[in-house]
Design a protein around this nucleic acid. Sequence first.
RNA 1: GGUCUCUUGGCCGAGUGGCUAGGCAGUGGUCUGCAAAACCAUGUACGGCGGUUCGAAUCCGCCAGAGACCUCCA
Length: 491
Amino acid sequence: MTGNFVIYNTLTRKKEVFKPLVEGKVGLYVCGPTVYSDSHLGHARPFITFDVLYRYLNYLEYKVRYVRNITDVGHLEDEVEGSGEDRISKKARLEKLEPMEVVQKYMNSFHFNMMQLNVKPPSIEPRASGHIIEQQELIESLLTKGFAYESNGSVYFDVEKYNQDFDYGKLSGRNLDDIRTNTRKLDGQEEKKNSFDFALWKKATPEHIMRWSSKWSDGFPGWHLECSAMSTKYLGEKFDIHGGGMDLTFPHHECEIAQSTANLGEEPVQYWMHNNMIKINGQKMARSLGNFVTLQELFSGNHEILEQAYSPMTIRFFVLQAHYRSELDFSNEALQASEKGLNRLMTALSTLNEIQASKVSTVDFDSVKEKCFAALNDDLNTPIAIAHLFDGVKIINSIKAGKESISVRDLNDIKSFYNKVVFEILGLQEENSDAKENSEILSGVVELLIELRKQAKSNKDWGMADKIRDDLNKIGIEIKDTKDGVDWMLK
RNA sequence: GGUCUCUUGGCCGAGUGGCUAGGCAGUGGUCUGCAAAACCAUGUACGGCGGUUCGAAUCCGCCAGAGACCUCCA
């Protein structure tokens, strides 16, 4: 119905027509969050991006199994921080919580944020801590096949050996010689044959709380391992799409490919998709850089750099107004633009329900529809798709204004088109309307005040009329005099 | 230092050899007692310097600036 869906594949650095391994079915894996603190705006981007991918694949009538992991075993800290302490256990000590309590807390808040952003839950959300056995089995297999070696209770992946049979660095465009000469010297690497070897199993230091027993040592899995183990378990040895942030390309995804390929003999993933970063003041927003704004802060406006609160849908729309492979600059001005743009789009959708159909259509909506889907098909180009939605808005408004007319059939067609694209595929939703509809008491009170104001107006008592309007405005209720009467909404 | 990417009008952001998105802001207008909202109209921008071409923001080269990765990171 909608032509070929094209995806930019990081592996080939080209756009490719998407063709699933199994007709009609898609296996999708996306790197999920490490749950040790609240999610920030940067985290929201991949989850919104791949949520739209998931929704679009569903729209294209694929049966999708979407796996998105939760990293809850913690990984090594930056060496500069000392100790090699697990980042989750470190936080736990600071807050005097059990590690799993920290995990639970932030997993809950992550889920809540995702719900606010209308990000659909994945089909399976496996936790690394629940797949220690699978990860150990994978290590075992790599040891048996000679791609890993044990050293002082830890197990490392032998990159050199792997590179003899396969191509280490193909995803990120590196080769081993470059890596060899350019890898920085880090401490605590004497155990490894080569500095670029990475841990599959790490022996825990005494103060490390999160640990599991194994034949090698009491320890914990290396940070690339869980994705290999869990994607294989739930999606099979070969699956269609793997997504994640661009900053994970190397080393994380590179190592993931190496582990899986060494184990399975062939590459597991057909299409690698990477979203770009959100920037703030010209720099990547990242926890480590301390320049982040959490989603909760964004939604409440409670952060010094925020001029106001921004609703979840504003954030979602903001993210979708840029292509997922482009950098996106954060600023109050940009966010406010998105807020107003979204409002314009949503207003047009409700206008759609007020339009009276005529016998004939004087407008042609087909090109809007075609261009919109063409954009989505072109590597999920949501900004272009949205641009065409706005072209449609212009048409809708001119019908409303009586400049154009539309037949019943075409009107229904447009309604279903906007429903599909805006709500189903882009995953936007109405905000605020709930409060208005759900509170009969409030609604009754406001209607009464509007009635009183109307009387004041007919008596030309502008002072009273304006007082009612302005005071309501102060407590967050906006009164609008429109052609068709008085409308009100919660701000 | 190595690998890679980017530089578009006041802001955010598409595009990638000729047809010169879209949103926001600004300006003008419609509506209105006023206001807000809404709606309509309106902007010829592509870092600099060369080159290729009938024609370049789009291709090539150089220069300048910014960023990402190489280390936990969405």
